[in-house]
C-alpha cells in the first residue's frame, strides 16, 4: 500500500491534481522523463503516469494526474492520508540531456506536468531553457510559477486567449524559430496532435526534436507490447524503448488511433462512477 502524503489541484478547473506519494523504492532512482504505474485497488487497472518530481530523502514521488479516464477520475477522489494499492517504477528511460546548451521545452495542457520536471532538471544543470506552455483556457493553467522558476524564459499561450496570449504552442515555437533563436533540441510533450504539428514546425529547421509518448500500457516492463509505436518504420515498445522518441520519425496518426482504442469503455465506465461516494467502491 502506498500513502498519499499530499494532494492538491493545480488549476481552477480541477482537471489536474498533484499527488505526493510515499514510495521509497521509486524515489531512489526516479529521473525526469520516466513514468510509474499506479493501481487504485484490487479491481483497478494499471495506469501509467509520468514522474513529476521526487524527494529521495523523504522517499516520496510526485505525480500530476489529469482526470482523463475512469481510473484517473477515481484517483482524483482519493484524499490525503489515504492509500492506493500499487505504485511501481521508475519505468522507461530518462530524458537525455547530455551536452545540451539551449533547449526549448514545450508542454501542452497536462503535458506541462511532464515537461516541467524536464525543464527543471535541465535548468539546474545549467542548460538554457525556453519553456513554452499552452493551455485550453485560463482555468486550465498549471504550474505557472514553477515553470517560470525552472526556465530562462516562460512563453505562455491559451487556445481562447483568456490568459496570456491567444496562441497554440506551435505558433509560439514558430515565432521563436523565425526570430532566429537557435535551439540544439526541442522537447515536446502534449496531446498527440500537438506533438505531430510541432514536429512539422521544427522539421524544416532540422532541429532534433524529442517527444514523450503515452500510449496505452499494461505491464510497463516490455512484456505485453500493447504500447507499441512506429518510429522510423520500426515497431518500438514505448515502455522500455521510450517513452522519448525522435519526433520526426514517429507515426503520430497510429499513436492517436491506438490511444483511442478503449474510449468506448472509458465513457461507459465513467457513467458508473458512484455519485454518492464520488468513485470509491462500496467494498473498498
Amino acid at each position: 500500500m502506498f500513502k498519499i502524503v499530499k494532494k492538491r489541484f493545480l488549476n481552477d478547473a480541477k482537471t489536474i491534481c498533484l499527488f505526493e506519494i510515499e514510495a521509497p523504492l521509486v524515489a531512489k532512482h526516479a529521473q525526469a522523463g520516466q513514468f510509474v504505474i499506479f493501481r487504485l485497488d484490487e479491481q483497478g487497472e494499471r495506469t501509467p503516469v509520468s514522474v513529476a518530481g521526487w524527494d529521495r530523502e523523504k522517499g516520496t514521488v510526485t505525480v500530476m494526474v489529469q482526470n482523463a479516464g475512469h481510473s484517473t477520475a477515481m484517483l482524483h477522489t482519493v484524499e490525503e492520508g489515504d492509500y492506493i494499492t500499487d505504485f511501481v517504477g521508475p519505468l522507461g528511460k530518462a530524458t537525455e540531456m547530455e551536452g545540451l546548451k539551449k533547449v526549448a521545452v514545450v508542454g501542452g495542457g497536462v503535458g506541462c506536468a511532464i515537461a516541467y520536471p524536464i525543464a527543471k532538471e535541465m535548468h539546474e544543470r545549467g542548460i538554457e531553457v525556453d519553456m513554452i506552455a499552452g493551455f485550453r483556457s485560463k482555468d486550465f493553467v498549471i504550474l505557472e510559477d514553477e515553470m517560470k522558476a525552472a526556465s530562462t524564459n516562460l512563453i505562455m499561450g491559451t487556445d481562447d486567449g483568456s490568459y496570456a496570449r491567444k496562441a497554440f504552442t506551435t505558433e509560439l515555437l514558430k515565432e521563436q524559430l523565425e526570430a532566429g533563436v537557435k535551439y540544439d533540441r526541442v522537447i515536446a510533450i502534449g496531446p498527440g496532435l500537438m506533438m505531430k504539428f510541432l514536429a512539422e514546425v521544427t522539421r524544416p529547421y532540422g532541429i532534433p526534436t524529442i517527444v514523450s509518448l503515452n500510449p496505452i500500457m499494461v505491464d510497463g516492463t516490455g512484456m505485453c507490447g500493447c504500447c507499441r509505436v512506429m518510429v522510423g518504420g520500426e515497431t518500438k515498445f514505448a515502455c522500455v524503448d521510450g517513452p522519448d522518441f525522435d519526433a520526426h520519425q514517429v507515426d503520430f496518426d497510429l499513436l492517436i488511433k491506438r490511444g483511442a482504442f478503449y474510449n468506448d469503455f472509458e465513457q461507459e465506465a465513467n457513467k458508473h462512477i458512484c455519485k454518492m461516494t464520488g468513485g470509491t467502491r462500496s467494498n473498498g
Partner: peptide, 20 residues
C-alpha cells in the same frame, strides 16, 4: 501476453474489474 494478462491477471473478463 497482452490478451492473456488483461484477462488472467487483470481479470478484464469480470464486470467488477476496471481493465478493459
Amino acid at each position: 501476453n497482452e490478451f492473456l494478462t488483461r484477462v488472467n491477471l487483470m481479470k478484464a473478463y469480470r464486470d467488477d474489474y476496471d481493465t478493459p
